[in-house]
C-alpha cells in the first residue's frame, strides 16, 4: 500500500505539472498566438469567446501572471475549459465530452487486444527462441514497429476499405442511424471500429511481442525456472506460473510508459478514419486554430494517460507480492 500511496502522490504532482505546462506553453510561444487570433477574428469575437481566449492566453498583460494562473485553476476546478472558437458557442468541455467516449472505446479496446495478442506471441517466440516462428516474428515486427501509424491506416483504408470494400472507412457509425442501444446500432458501431482498431493493433502488437519475448528470455534463465524444470513441474505450469507470471511484470510497467506512444498513434489513426474521437477533434482544432479547444484536449489526454498509468500501477501491485505484501527485504 505504501507503493500505491507513493504512486498517487506522483500522479498528483504530474497532473499539476501538466496543468502548469498547459498554462504556460502558449504564453511562452514566440509571437503570442492569442494576438494572431485577435487579428484573425477581430471584432467578430463576442465577449464569452474573448474571455475564453483571455484565460487561455493572458491577453491582459497588466494582470500579474500569478493571478492569471490562479484564475485558470479556478476555472478548471469548476470543470470549465472555456468556449470553443471554431464551434462557437459550444463549450470545450461539452465537445470533449462527446468525443472522449469514442476514443476510450476504440483505443482502450484495441490496446487491450493488442497487449494480449502481443504477450501470447512474445511468450511463444521466447519458448521457441531462435526457431522459425521466433525468427519470422522478430523480423516481421521490426518492420511493423517502424511504419508510421497513419500510413498503415491509409494502406488499410485503401486496401480493405476502398479496394475490397467490406468495411466502412469513416466515422463511428452510419450517418443515417440514430444512436440507440439497439443491436443493429451496436453492430454498426463495431463494423466501423474494425478498420481503425485493426490499424492500432497491427502497429502496436509488435511492441508488446518484442518486449514480452525479451523479458521471457531473461526470465527463462532465472534460477527458479531452471529449478522448476528440475522439480519435474509440467511444461504448462512452468510456462504460465513460473516464466509467464514473472515475465509479464516488466511489461505492465512498460505499458504505463508506452501509453503516450499508444495515444499518439491512436490519434493519427482517428484522423485518417475520421473517427469522431479526441484525435480527430484535436486535428480540427489545430486546423482552425481553436486554441481553447487545443488546450482542453491536451489536458484531457494527459489526464487520461495518467489515469491509465495508475490503472497499470494498481494491476502491477496486484500481480507482484513484493509490492503488495511487505517483508524482510
Amino acid at each position: 500500500m505504501r507503493y500505491l500511496m507513493r504512486r498517487i502522490i506522483f500522479y498528483v504532482v504530474a497532473f499539476v505539472a501538466t496543468i502548469t505546462i498547459n498554462f504556460f506553453l502558449p504564453r511562452a510561444m514566440p509571437g503570442n498566438p492569442a494576438e494572431a487570433l485577435m487579428s484573425k477574428f477581430g471584432g467578430r469575437l463576442n465577449p464569452l469567446a474573448l474571455k475564453s481566449i483571455e484565460i487561455a492566453f493572458g491577453l491582459h498583460e497588466h494582470e500579474p501572471i500569478w493571478n492569471q494562473y490562479l484564475q485558470y485553476l479556478g476555472q478548471l476546478l469548476h470543470g470549465n475549459l472555456g468556449t470553443s472558437l471554431a464551434y462557437y458557442p459550444a463549450s470545450v468541455s461539452g465537445l470533449i465530452g462527446t468525443a472522449l467516449p469514442w476514443t476510450l472505446f476504440l483505443v482502450g479496446l484495441s490496446t487491450i487486444i493488442s497487449f494480449v495478442i502481443g504477450i501470447i506471441i512474445g511468450s511463444i517466440s521466447a519458448w521457441r527462441f531462435g526457431g522459425a516462428f521466433d525468427t519470422f516474428m522478430s523480423t516481421f515486427f521490426t518492420f511493423t514497429y517502424a511504419f508510421p501509424y497513419f500510413w498503415i491506416a491509409l494502406a488499410c483504408l485503401y486496401l480493405i476499405g476502398y479496394l475490397w470494400g467490406v468495411f466502412p472507412i469513416s466515422g463511428a457509425y452510419s450517418m443515417d442511424l440514430v444512436p440507440t442501444l439497439s443491436g443493429s446500432f451496436v453492430f454498426n458501431v463495431i463494423r466501423h471500429a474494425i478498420l481503425p482498431s485493426l490499424t492500432i493493433i497491427f502497429t502496436s502488437v509488435g511492441y508488446w511481442a518484442v518486449n514480452m519475448r525479451n523479458t521471457t528470455i531473461t526470465t527463462l534463465a532465472e534460477d527458479y525456472v531452471t529449478m522448476a524444470e528440475a522439480k519435474g513441474i509440467t511444461l504448462r505450469r512452468i510456462l504460465l506460473r513460473y516464466a509467464g507470471r514473472n515475465a509479464i511484470l516488466p511489461n505492465i510497467t512498460g505499458f504505463a510508459m508506452s501509453m503516450g506512444f499508444i495515444v499518439g498513434g491512436a490519434i493519427l489513426t482517428e484522423i485518417v478514419f475520421s473517427y469522431p474521437g479526441l484525435g480527430n477533434l484535436l486535428f480540427q482544432a489545430v486546423q482552425q486554430e481553436d486554441y481553447p479547444l487545443i488546450q482542453g484536449i491536451l489536458m484531457i489526454i494527459s489526464f487520461s494517460v495518467l489515469a491509465a498509468n495508475f490503472v497499470a500501477d494498481v494491476t502491477y501491485s496486484l500481480l507482484d507480492p513484493r509490492v503488495r505484501v511487505g517483508g524482510n527485504q
Partner: peptide, 21 residues
C-alpha cells in the same frame, strides 16, 4: 523525467507545433 515520460509526447508535439505557425 518520470513526468515527461508519462506525457503523451506526440500530442504535445502536435500542440506545440500548432502554436508555432
Amino acid at each position: 523525467t518520470n513526468i515527461v515520460l508519462v506525457l503523451p509526447s506526440i500530442v504535445l508535439v502536435i500542440v506545440i507545433s500548432s502554436y508555432i505557425s
